[in-house]
Simulated assay, not measured.
Amino acid sequence: MKKVELQNVSRRYGNTSAIEDISFSIAEGQFCVLVGPSGCGKSTLLRAIAGLEKVSDGRIYINEQRVNDIPAKDRDVAMVFQNYALYPHLTVAENLEFGLKMRKIDPKIREKQVQKIAQSLGISHLLNRKPKQLSGGQQQRVALGRAIIRQPQAFLLDEPLSNLDAQLREETRAELKRLHQELGITTIYVTHDQGEAMTLGEQLVVLSEGKIQQIGTPEAVYHYPANLMVAGFLGSPPMNCVRVQYMDGKLQLGKQSLPVNSELEKHLLNYNENKFCLGIRPEAISAVSPSLEDEFGTLELEVKLIEPLGRETLLRGEIVGTEDDLNFLVPGIWQGKPEQRLTVKIDLDRVFIFDQNNGERIYPRN
């Protein structure tokens, strides 16, 4: 059953489009993540679903009911904002039960619900405190609890973890995933953090400049990015994209080249252009001994940047004879120095080819 559905939704401010012709659906109980760079329209889209933004065109359905003209308070959705929006003069318990109180739920039932939610979020010991007495992580859990306790049709979260430090963000993210698995509430989550999107989402809606770039599971979007925008945005480090020319059965990178397999060659031969963008995930690149530099699938790089990350090191090297860089990881602490030459092997079964003009993926076909 479709819990939330958008059909050709647009939101314009004068001649400027914040979102344009957005269509997708979210199944009941699904965790859907709207992800993209800042300014891509994801928060505007979430606010349109909540009823806080009036759409210029299109239709929005919640539980198969068209809600375009239904006020936000009557859409039966709960929204958690980046700034938590707790009532400072109320205790944690009073903040949690506020929505139930407005709906005139019996006080005994309210108390039971508050205790249940507080226990599941690990904030039972904070019920008598006020927001100013809480840490950022505790305030976040109270905001989440206040939304969950209403048992809404859909749960909308707008960058709810962005104010937390790295460790607390990781802990709260795990808590969110556990709560979703336990409660099964349809959830729409906005973030610019692709790691968060990949970890939490069952369905990703990738946005850029107000338009949908790709919709799919995290695995599908990662392994089969629809275009250069998606390829470069998802992944840490992101996919490398370098300019290549197809000549004489090889991908030419300056004076260096990479061979192509028969399947890739078939796609390239049937294509009118001979200039492409080659996509290579960092995990498809590995450093090898200089004695293997003439082996098929190797490139010579000049190291430009070294970033130790603890258990591994991120290296950025310029492909010799070009102005293009490759980012990749090597295990442990790398002992080399900047400007050192390095031979790397490319896993040719894991490369991508994109149209240089429109950025669309040409290979592989899924």
Rank of each mutant, 00 (worst) to 15 (best):
I148L: 12
L34C: 00
S23P: 09
E273Y: 14
A50G: 13
I49T: 02
G249V: 07
R11I: 10
N95I: 02
S38T: 05
E111D: 10
L204R: 06
V330I: 04
E97Q: 13
D106C: 00
V206H: 01
F296Q: 15
W334D: 09
R311K: 14
Q356T: 07
L127R: 11
L90P: 01
Q151R: 14
E170N: 14
R75T: 06
N68C: 11
R75W: 12
V320E: 05
L144W: 09
G29K: 08
I19L: 08
L329N: 12
P282R: 06
A48M: 08
P308A: 01
E302I: 02
I70R: 01
L176K: 01
V33C: 12
I185R: 00
P88S: 01
K132E: 02
K101F: 12
D248S: 10
M79P: 03
A174G: 07
I117H: 04
E171N: 14
P308F: 03
V190T: 11
Q340D: 06
R11M: 05
R12N: 12
V92L: 10
G336R: 01
N15H: 10
G201Y: 09
E175A: 13
A78H: 02
S120G: 05
G184Q: 12
R59H: 13
M79K: 03
G58M: 05
R141M: 06
I319F: 02
T16S: 13
S162N: 04
G122N: 08
D248R: 11
K2V: 11
E20A: 14
Q82L: 09
K3H: 07
S208K: 14
E265F: 10
A226K: 07
Y84Q: 03
Q139I: 10
R361N: 04
N83K: 13
L314T: 15
